[in-house]
Design a protein around this nucleic acid. Sequence first.
DNA 1: CCGCCATTGTAAACTAGCCGACAAATGTTG
DNA 2: CAACATTTGTCGGCTAGTTTACAATGGCGG
Lengths: 225, 225
Amino acid sequence: MSEELKYWYLRDHKLFWTLSMSQIKQLCIIVGYKKAKKGDIIYFSSSDVPRIFLLKKGNIKIVEIDEDGNETIKDIIQKGDLFGELTLENDKNSNEYAKALTDEVAICSFLMSDFENLMLQNPNLALTYTKFVGLKMKRIKNNYSNLMSKDAKTRLFTFIKEWAEKEGKKDGNKVTIENYLTQADIAQIIGTSRQTATQLLNEMEENQLIFYTRKEILIDDITKL
Amino acid sequence: MSEELKYWYLRDHKLFWTLSMSQIKQLCIIVGYKKAKKGDIIYFSSSDVPRIFLLKKGNIKIVEIDEDGNETIKDIIQKGDLFGELTLENDKNSNEYAKALTDEVAICSFLMSDFENLMLQNPNLALTYTKFVGLKMKRIKNNYSNLMSKDAKTRLFTFIKEWAEKEGKKDGNKVTIENYLTQADIAQIIGTSRQTATQLLNEMEENQLIFYTRKEILIDDITKL
DNA sequence: CCGCCATTGTAAACTAGCCGACAAATGTTG
DNA sequence: CAACATTTGTCGGCTAGTTTACAATGGCGG
């Protein structure tokens, strides 16, 4: 890949707007530029050197396996999102990995230490990054506090609404979402069993609120959710 | 309060170790130095100017009220913790306030904008703060993912263990925690009803694992939890 | 186009934990 | 100390949601 191209791969992310070309080069970008296909396991957080990753294309889920072998979805990462050791601390005893959800996935990465150095030289970057992490924290907090206090149906509605807002193609009150999640995935995200999720989705379909297929989800009228 | 004293109030927090006295003065510290008593409501996040707060003494809980009037505990803040708009973004539509849990509570605060300026001048501060926020995010993430997948008993055990580690006075395997929470508070934190929490605590007491009083919690052998 | 595997659909039995409703105990205040 | 408020204890009944188990469907590779 040409140097020029590498540059633009990062350059088009908001976070790096303030950086000069030479600064971006400092990040030794795209050493780990990687492609993957649906279902592939992409990376273990306990890898060699701490890195920060940037998803350029597709969608992935971050999954953790606990002692009992249960899979928990920690996060869904979309095109343009950063992931990895966002805390700037590497944490070895976490058991996380990423799994591709869409057919084509492209990821580039840079070293955490390079990024830290750059932050020391460019306080504006540090500020932007902090706000970035802060925003992510706020989103997580909100999500989870919904999960705690509401019942499964409300959680599903909230999730679909948020998903539609973030990624849906709007046409008046109709929204189309490209569906790269299985019902089992959705169930895990909203913290319920697969069966309950299926039931609720079908119930929504009966009430003409949504139309679910494996490829896409059609929402007839987003305001009714 | 003397300038000297103000200085030390911030100076003894890790985050500010790298700052010079004059830099700390820039923060116009302790404009909002405040004391409060148990049960007092201390601050609404939708206050005039965005601030960051530092709890110097006592314990408080951050609470949110939703549309239906339900109280949710968002966070428990301990001596030395920062709270407020840590994300560096002010967010007006959140309905949070803080409530004193201990008899004496002391808080000092500074303006977010002053802090931002200081970060721009002092990249090291920026880096430290970013790690700080990141760490907080990681803690929240872990807490919540426990809440999702485990049952009430496990959640209570995990909570007590963490509490003991963070604040307990250890004596071999015995740990004493100063108890500033009611059982209703604990129930909210672990996401269950007050009655269930009471039942589980009594069960633990029957099994000689803990001894609960309103003043303190004694753990006979922390390794057995 | 066939067979296979992942995904989705459905139903019955079971259960953790919620809710309502008090009673008892402990603290607090004048 | 008396009266009141807050916190803790306890008990059924109830229900949302889990679990188990299996059937139907759809999509992909050969």
